[in-house]
Design a binder for these strands. Structure first.
Lengths: 220, 220
DNA sequence: GCAACGTCGTGAAATTTTCCCGGCGTTGGT
DNA sequence: ACCAACGCCGGGAAAATTTCACGACGTTGC
């Protein structure tokens, strides 16, 4: 392990997956895994104490998720290099991750070589995006599916989040200190803006765009 | 590699995860990974040609999913030993997997030792279930959350699946050759039987119970 | 045979969704 | 300072949906 080795922090809540990362990266000269974390909070803590050259970060994790972890790390170190490596092939997640400050986005379906290449690219200062995600992004542009976070006003987005949570119209009206009528109006307006006809479609859209993640369901 | 080694087929659509499996299992004497598959169809094909002693199977995969792959393999070989190893910590998935013929269910959050132990248990003819899933199952018994597949009649379940797909009431009526009114009635009855008040809750329940999986969304 | 149940449908009441409207405050440009 | 544009809040009423009660029909099982 030469002093010139690039140091890496692995973040994934599945230990077997971390094992896989390590196995792949070990074969590459010049790379050294110096720490591992199983959730966002631990990742943040370890980044501050170890200041690795690169973080490889999963998104779906209990507690503080990957996106939030990216945000926090970047807030602490504007120069942090974070490569998101996740199962989610949705363009929505990629957009969120990059906006949060990630320098790369690679899906887990990619072959190991792609991960290695992305690692090297990010270390070299480049931005690395999976080809399939590039394609997804292009498609979402073409199909014109509006990103909820973009077309909705803050208030509308807030109502959307609460709707997806599990609250009834009345409960949401209660928490927001407005009349149930307003919530119903916003609910209708949101569906209109997002171009969906039913609540079921609304939930599907939210899942696609990563507003609601499957792991959230456990907390119900 | 002695002739007494237990042969293993790995099934997971993420190559890095397979890398992790292999790395963990390699350290164990008496185990030998002889093949890998990235989806259910390939798993079925490889099982028939290789007849391994054990299959380690992921659930979320493109095309033919893990549950269906388990079913097919067991149909071809009633003695097949399949260990499901997945990220899903929902009891619903575990129930489905076991009913389909899996001999074990371990979540990816479990430490590598748990995987190794489960592999040995299943090879020894035992049933291996993660402690966290045991707990989940106990909770779902206590909370009395009705399993959709159990309380719903076949017809109701069919309508539920179509509702979750993306169809409108009219489209479903069309495909089932019944009046839209009947579909609406069933829709209402389903929500009543499952004890949910809104469509949004309905989707959440379906996700928890594995009737709808996040990967299905891509096909929308 | 008949009781129980699943399936399909009607009709009418109850509720919700949707659309249109106005008021109010903030922002930004002229 | 003014006005226009927009976000936010909710009322009212029409339109659509959800829900409930009810009956018919066939099948199953005692």
């Amino acid at each position: 392990m030469s002093a010139a080795d690039a140091t890496i922090l692995l973040v994934d809540d599945h230990s077997v997956v971390r094992e896989g990362y390590r196995s792949v990266l070990q074969k590459q000269p010049g790379l050294r895994v110096i720490a591992e974390a199983a959730d966002g909070a631990e990742a943040y803590r370890l980044y501050k104490s170890e200041t690795p050259d690169l973080v490889i970060m999963d998104l779906s994790m209990p507690g503080i998720g990957g996106i939030e972890a990216v945000r926090r790390i970047r807030q602490w170190d504007k120069a942090a290099r974070i490569l998101v490596f996740t199962m989610h092939e949705n363009a929505g997640f990629a957009v969120q991750a990059i906006r949060a400050g990630a320098r790369g986005y690679v899906t887990k379906t990619s072959p190991p070589e792609s991960l290695v290449r992305a690692v090297k690219d990010v270390l070299a200062g480049k931005i690395a995006i999976s080809p399939d995600i590039d394609h997804e992004l292009a498609l979402s542009r073409i199909s014109g599916e509006s990103s909820a976070a973009d077309v909705l006003t803050p208030r509308e987005f807030e109502v959307l989040r609460l709707l997806l949570a599990e609250n009834t119209t009345e409960e949401i009206a209660e928490t927001l200190h407005v009349s149930p009528k307003t919530v119903a109006n916003l609910h209708s307006l949101i569906k209109d803006k997002l171009g969906v006809g039913s609540d079921i479609e609304l939930v599907r859209l939210a899942l696609r765009q990563g507003i609601l993640t499957e792991v959230d369901l456990g907390e119900a």
